[in-house]
Simulated scan of single mutants.
Amino acid sequence: MPNTQVMTTMAGQPLRVEVDGHHYRVAADPVRWYERRAWWTEVDRAPKDQCPYLVDREVWQVQVTVDLPAGARRRRGAVRDRELRTLHLERDRATGGWDVVENL
């Protein structure tokens, strides 16, 4: 699983994403939804205070582009580097951590 860091707005919406040392900025409005999960296949018991986090998982679809330093944006070929990629990110609501669940 890739090492993922996400910088968010105060409301929790992704702004910047780092995946295995590669830096991206969110280039379009992200989309959030919740999916049911088969939590009973992941844990033996559901702790009382974590039940809401076990039932659903929070997923964000983000379109990102390579986050180039200001000086690099002017160089030749920078347009090619700025192509959009789509990522599906899952936020662990218990820990606040993020994972890439799908890289489209």
Score class of each variant (00 low, 15 high):
86 T>M: 13
102 E>P: 01
14 P>N: 11
22 H>E: 09
35 E>L: 13
67 D>Y: 07
2 P>L: 11
24 Y>F: 13
79 V>T: 12
68 L>Y: 11
67 D>R: 08
25 R>S: 04
12 G>D: 02
80 R>P: 00
35 E>Q: 15
73 R>Y: 01
31 V>Q: 09
49 D>W: 10
65 T>Q: 15
44 D>T: 13
39 W>R: 04
29 D>S: 07
8 T>P: 04
1 M>A: 15
4 T>Y: 08
92 D>W: 04
8 T>A: 08
32 R>T: 06
58 E>S: 12
61 Q>F: 02
50 Q>G: 00
42 E>P: 02
100 V>R: 02
21 G>A: 13
63 Q>G: 05
98 W>H: 03
87 L>M: 14
60 W>K: 02
33 W>F: 15
56 D>W: 08
9 T>N: 00
84 L>R: 13
19 V>G: 03
50 Q>N: 04
86 T>F: 06
100 V>G: 02
103 N>C: 11
82 R>T: 05
34 Y>V: 12
49 D>N: 09
36 R>H: 04
2 P>Q: 15
66 V>P: 01
42 E>I: 06
102 E>Y: 12
26 V>S: 02
63 Q>K: 12
95 T>S: 11
17 V>S: 01
98 W>P: 01
100 V>P: 03
7 M>C: 09
94 A>G: 04
33 W>M: 15
71 G>H: 07
70 A>I: 09
52 P>V: 07
85 R>N: 07
19 V>M: 09
93 R>M: 10
50 Q>I: 08
45 R>A: 11
24 Y>K: 04
16 R>L: 15
99 D>N: 09
65 T>V: 12
3 N>I: 14
43 V>Y: 11
26 V>E: 00
91 R>I: 06
83 E>L: 10
60 W>C: 00
40 W>Y: 11
57 R>E: 10
9 T>I: 03
98 W>L: 05
42 E>C: 06
28 A>K: 06
55 V>E: 02
59 V>F: 07
2 P>A: 14
31 V>Y: 06
89 L>W: 05
30 P>H: 10
9 T>E: 01
34 Y>N: 13
92 D>S: 11
9 T>P: 01
51 C>N: 00
104 L>I: 13
11 A>K: 14
38 A>R: 06
8 T>I: 06
60 W>Y: 12
90 E>T: 09
1 M>E: 14
95 T>M: 01
63 Q>A: 11
84 L>N: 09
89 L>G: 02
90 E>P: 01
72 A>F: 08
42 E>T: 07
54 L>G: 03
48 K>V: 09
44 D>P: 05
48 K>S: 06
57 R>V: 09
6 V>G: 04
31 V>E: 09
90 E>Y: 01
87 L>E: 03
11 A>L: 14
62 V>L: 07
35 E>A: 12
94 A>R: 10
70 A>Q: 08
66 V>K: 13
86 T>P: 00
89 L>Q: 05
92 D>N: 14
1 M>P: 15
64 V>Q: 00
89 L>D: 03
96 G>V: 00
3 N>K: 14
86 T>N: 12
72 A>S: 07
47 P>A: 13
83 E>M: 12
